[in-house]
Design a protein around this nucleic acid. Structure first.
Length: 583
RNA sequence: GCGCCCGUAGCUCAACGGAUAGAGCACGAGACUUCUAAUCUCGAGGUUGCAGGUUCGAUUCCUGCCGGGCGCGCCA
């Protein structure tokens, strides 16, 4: 249960009771009433703004209204104290028994703890990575991959029906250049000296094996053929090879997509022609001449009539071209068709995770979604800022000759999948991030990955130790749920339970905000509370988990099991595997 | 020139429109015959870039400036 939602319902119920009794006016709009964690423990456990929000419409003084409501709230069994404070906050302290019940709930739910139905099964499409198939994924793609995947899992946990999708940009000039690059490597593999890779083509060594593989498949048959003959073949061959590498990297990160959508297949299906007809009917397509951007005119700018989409009618700065001068579709035109396709497959909410360099594209894509869905669907774009790689504080230099930055595959091989995933989620998506390869592996408290892992490992360690003493059967989550949790009276113990009990709310708010990084911060907080509790046992043996008092030991083990469960549940959302021990 | 993102402790970063803005690092002082001290406790550190506006209440929303990043037709 989301306890804040629970108490908000209670507040609203009590307000209507009060209204019925004539204590306050009836029919007040309670939509702005919220129940939140108290900022400071001294204020209590939870707080509501009800009195402040309703004072004006009720024509009452906030403290007077708050007094009446606080009296009612104080009468609830779960509330041990309700006071009015400051400008009109009603602070409530919850009974210990309420918190014990939350712990029991954790133990009974297991990794499903925190599952919510706020999403009501609504379909959400999360598109991420969607890198050009022109080379290996690099580190920035990795950030988008991790953010998108964790967001997808988070949304699932919050009750949405999520489809994970990857758009393959396998049409257009880039993949043609790729095919020509492979062709050079193909000739090279057949013994020719090809010299420098010309400007505009892909110089990376990663195409050498592709050229060699092509020789193995097709022999020298393309040497004498004209480009018109070999280009489509080699393009398809190369894209397939690149996508194989992409899938391997994603698999190494533990990411599996529900669907890969090919841009060229989409174009071939006529979907772009269709969307254009649609928009023509709506009067959103016209032929016009764009003005050169002020202060940034390209050298070869010349005014030219183009097929334009009236995106300025939906908040974009200018209208956007849909056809290149050679008559083929722009990337944008195909992307419009793609998002229309998503909508027709039943997605009214779409999330795209992009690199920051695509920031200038957001408005037109949102405009396009609004236009092609007649306002029925919404697009949220999460821009991931760049990742600066360093090693021991020194920037990692990119390799020019290899034609790529440090690849995602290199990064995973270097620090491991779980470290990559966790670290990528320790920053909000739109903040730049420094990823230090040494620090990410450091086993110290300034490495959040380790810090959270360590808390979980300590939990497991205690439970293993207890299982040896008390028998495995007595320390399962199910058995511990039956422990006398009322024995957990220490403030530090209750503090840990309170953080655990905040997990369902965290899931809901992070999911609604589309911000998976909050999970990482939450887990860090929980780990901090647990490490603190642990150390109390170092100072005073009576505060150890395993003590000379079996009922108390079992209650404390239940707490430990609960922490392990919630950490594992949070890591699951992040796609990180919890560790049993760290030695 | 225009648009988007960012601006919070010396540094790296948090904070559903809520109260006295929080963590970590670095700095100072302490706690290990261990259920894992790779941890913990305490201290010091702030005009949330600046100026207005909305609000009972603004780090958060709006406007304008300043600074940094990204982008700006026929690349994706």
């Amino acid at each position: 249960m989301n306890l804040y939602q629970h108490f908000r319902d209670e507040v609203i119920r009590l307000l209507s009771e009060l209204a019925a009794a004539g204590g306050i006016p009836a029919g007040l709009d309670a939509s702005r009433v919220s129940v939140d964690p108290a900022r400071e423990a001294a204020h209590g456990d939870i707080t509501t703004n009800a009195a402040m929000v309703l004072a004006k419409p009720a024509g009452m003084n906030p403290r007077a209204l708050g007094g009446i409501l606080a009296e009612r709230l104080g009468g609830l069994e779960a509330v041990s104290a309700a006071d009015i404070a400051g400008p009109g906050f009603i602070n409530m302290r919850l009974a210990a028994g309420f918190w014990h019940q939350r712990l029991k709930e954790v133990l009974l739910a297991g990794s499903a703890y925190g599952d919510s139905d706020v999403g009501s099964g609504e379909a959400i499409n999360v598109e991420y990575v969607s890198a050009n198939p022109t080379g290996p994924l690099h580190v920035a793609h990795g950030r988008g991959a991790v953010v998108g995947d964790a967001l997808a899992t988070l949304l699932e946990k919050a009750g949405f029906k999520v489809t994970r999708e990857y758009y393959i940009n396998d049409a257009g000039a880039q993949v043609e250049a790729l095919a020509r690059s492979t062709y050079l490597r193909y000739r090279e593999a057949l013994g020719e000296t090809i010299g420098e890779i010309p400007e505009g083509l892909y110089p990376g060594d990663y195409l050498k094996p592709v050229g060699e593989a092509l020789v193995r498949r097709d022999g020298d048959k393309w040497l004498v053929a004209g480009e018109a003959a070999w280009l489509p073949e080699i393009r398809a061959f190369t894209v397939a090879a690149m996508m194989e590498g992409v899938r391997a990297d994603l698999k190494a990160l533990g990411i599996a997509f529900d669907r890969f959508v090919s841009e060229s297949a989409l174009v071939a299906s006529g979907a772009v022609d269709e969307v254009l007809k649609d928009l023509e009917k709506k009067g959103l397509i016209y032929t016009g001449v764009l003005e050169a951007p002020k202060g940034h005119a390209p050298d070869d700018w010349e005014p030219r009539p183009q097929t334009l989409f009236r995106s300025s009618a939906f908040g974009d700065e200018i209208d956007r071209p849909l056809r290149k001068s050679d008559g083929s579709w722009t990337y944008f035109a195909a992307d419009m068709a793609y998002h229309r396709d998503k909508f027709r497959r039943g997605f009214n909410t779409m999330i795209d995770v992009w690199g920051a360099d695509h920031g200038g594209y957001v408005k037109r894509m949102k405009a396009a979604v609004e236009a092609v869905t007649s306002g029925a669907a919404a697009l949220d774009v999460k821009l991931c800022q760049i990742v600066h790689l360093s090693r021991g504080g020194e920037p990692v230099r990119m390799s020019k000759r290899a034609g790529v930055f440090v690849t995602l595959g290199d990064l995973i091989a270097d620090v491991g999948r779980d470290v990559v995933r966790f670290t990528m989620l320790t920053r909000k998506n739109d903040s730049q991030m420094e990823f230090d390869l040494e620090k990410a592996l450091e086993q110290s408290r300034d490495n959040p990955v380790f810090y959270v892992h360590y808390a979980h490992a300590r939990c497991r360690s205690v439970l293993r130790s207890a299982a040896a003493d008390l028998g495995v059967r007595n320390v399962t989550a199910e058995a511990l749920a039956e422990a006398d949790l009322g024995l957990l009276k220490d403030n530090a113990e209750l503090a840990v339970i309170k953080i655990m009990a905040g997990w369902p709310r965290l899931v809901e708010t992070a999911a609604e905000a589309h911000e998976p990084h909050r999970v990482a911060y939450y887990l860090h907080d929980l780990a901090t509370a647990f490490h603190g509790l642990w150390n109390l046992g170092n100072d005073d043996v009576r505060l150890k988990f395993i003590v000379d008092d079996k009922p108390l030991t079992l209650a404390r083990l239940a707490l430990v099991q609960g922490v392990a469960t919630v950490i594992a549940s949070g890591l699951q959302v992040m796609g990180v595997r919890p560790v049993e021990e760290l030695r």
